[in-house]
Design a protein around this nucleic acid. Structure first.
Lengths: 207, 207
DNA sequence: CTCTCACAGTGGTCAGACCAGTTTATTTTT
DNA sequence: AAAAATAAACTGGTCTGACCACTGTGAGAG
């Protein structure tokens, strides 16, 4: 009890030090991290502890290791994370419905965000693009979620998409008319009551 | 090229075997897993590889280890995951805005879901409850997200809430009038065009 | 019966060894 | 001199054995 806090495990500390190291050196996806042996020496810990930290980060999809080459920053796309979330957290059948619902609502939110954030000209071009694009394709919604400029939504959506595709469900078919109608409705309601209140609330949370 | 696929790392295989072991034995949160040494022997791999797998699962918040006692299943609430997401993925300042935005939109989505899913009587009671409750409290929104009956949204929201609270930001203050107005607007628009299209699209994704 | 304490079991960590790949430098061959 | 083959120096992947710190338990002392 009296002892300070020897609780923190070494590998957790390594994860933190790696984080600050990445931040300090400004490492981008694709950049190489120091070797395991060098990290072990620089941080004054055993190599196995370094490996435990690296393996954990790898499973999270944050880094990538190639034997003989080294350890590299990864373009976070939650690869392993997908299967883990899908097998551990989303194991019950009921949650498949939640995935559908959540994925769709996020797409709707992103559509909303695009329309809110875009100016008149961008809005027109976007409207035109939606008419030409193939919205039954994953890439269409990927573009939608990307344009929303919310990295968090993007990450979550990608995970949901991968999980959704890993199931052998039929695609959610949407007619072009329906989707166009939805977009037009959202655009026309850009200044409706819901949006107005939403905007006011948003303004309160400016940084 | 011709070689089958010796790529799979040992610790990844251990993660998978652990998963099937958990599923097969029906291990629930709180249950104890075999010891590292026993797993090492049973799976015919080194203890260090077992540890790499366990550490990764621990960082994901799926298991919990207590020195001298053993390794236990955990009630997944993404504890470590929170800090990781917050420190790695959300490290740049810009993404703080994403967290705010995402959290708020999810709350909005859940509000939407509640109103859509509820019948007339439940809707009235819900409306009454929102007038009495303290909506600046986390518990209020927790109730909202819970009532939406979407476990995935609930999980994500909890993570965002924890992260949001870990930052030392001022709370997003919403006046009672604003929030009431928002709810009333959503309720009154229950059959508006957006909702109608949304419903049609949702119906297409029934199981 | 109760208390104490040694012991077995468990996770935490480290060091060293070896294997399997990749990269780089060196040597050999053309 | 240029190109090809070889060797050396790394890098990650894995295993083993050892030791520490901690927990639970059971045997023996009181």
């Amino acid at each position: 009890m009296n002892s300070p806090q020897n609780n923190t495990k070494v590998y957790i500390g390594i994860v933190k030090q790696l984080r600050s190291m990445i931040e300090h050196d400004g490492l981008k996806p694709g950049d190489r991290l120091p070797s395991e042996r060098e990290l072990s020496e620089r941080l004054g810990v055993g190599r196995s502890s370094v490996r435990e930290a690296l393996r954990a980060l790898e499973l999270l999809g944050l880094i990538e290791t190639r034997r003989g080459e080294g350890t590299f920053m990864r373009d976070f796309r939650g690869h392993q994370l997908v299967q883990l979330l899908s097998t551990f957290i989303l194991q019950d059948k009921k949650s498949i419905r939640d995935v559908k619902e959540t994925k769709f609502l996020i797409e709707l939110d992103c559509l909303w965000l695009i329309i809110q954030k875009a100016g008149e000209d961008r809005l027109l071009r976007f409207r035109k693009w939606t008419l030409e694009a193939d919205y039954t394709d994953d890439d269409f919604f990927l573009e939608i979620v990307t344009l929303a400029e919310n990295h968090l939504f993007l990450r979550i959506w990608i995970i949901l998409k991968d999980y959704y595709n890993s199931l052998d469900l039929e695609k959610m078919m949407i007619t072009k008319q329906q989707y166009a109608e939805l977009i037009d409705t959202l655009i026309s309601r850009k200044d409706s009551e819901v949006i107005r209140v939403y905007k006011e609330l948003r303004n309160l949370s400016k940084d």
